[in-house]
């Protein structure tokens, strides 16, 4: 019976780890959509900036103030931000892939443990029946 108890405890901890992984992956997915939205908005801004004439006045909102900015500078800033967002999305994708793998592994572990426990339980019952 002690073995069963130990197994049950192990199963519980494994299940908790699995749940943690699930939570983490849903968090990454949320972050990813956020970055994707930002990417889209920045792309839109860059397109608008490309349409402008060279002498156009561009302002950047800094806190409550509008600060005049060079068009070339603004373009390069938006470009840099897009680069950063792209990298971040790639990083998140990689992280999500490895998380998925870990999740699948953990799931298999948990299922295997459950099966083992069931076997042990039926065995114990059979033994108890045989004894009585």
């Amino acid at each position: 019976m002690d073995a069963l108890q130990a197994m049950r405890q192990k199963l519980e901890t494994e299940a908790k780890v699995f749940q943690g992984l699930q939570k983490e992956s849903s968090k990454s997915a949320g972050l990813r959509t956020q970055f994707q939205q930002q990417q889209q908005e920045n792309n839109m801004v860059l397109k608008e900036l490309e349409l402008l004439e060279e002498e156009a006045n561009v302002y950047k909102l800094v806190g409550p103030m509008l600060i005049k900015q060079d068009l070339v500078e603004a373009k390069s800033n938006v470009g840099k931000r897009l680069e950063y967002i792209g990298d971040e999305i790639k990083r998140l994708d990689n992280g999500m892939k490895s998380l998925e793998k870990k999740q699948a592994e953990k799931q298999q572990e948990v299922v295997a443990l459950q099966q083992k426990m069931q076997q042990l339980q039926t065995k114990g019952q059979a033994q108890a029946q045989a004894a009585s």
């Binding site: 930002q38 908005e41 801004v45 900036l49 402008l52 156009a56 006045n57 561009v58 302002y59 950047k60």
Partner: peptide, 13 residues
């Protein structure tokens, strides 16, 4: 007029 083109950038048009 000042146009908000997104992400805090405004352009005079």
């Amino acid at each position: 007029v000042l146009i908000d083109i997104g992400t805090g950038y405004f352009v005079e048009k």
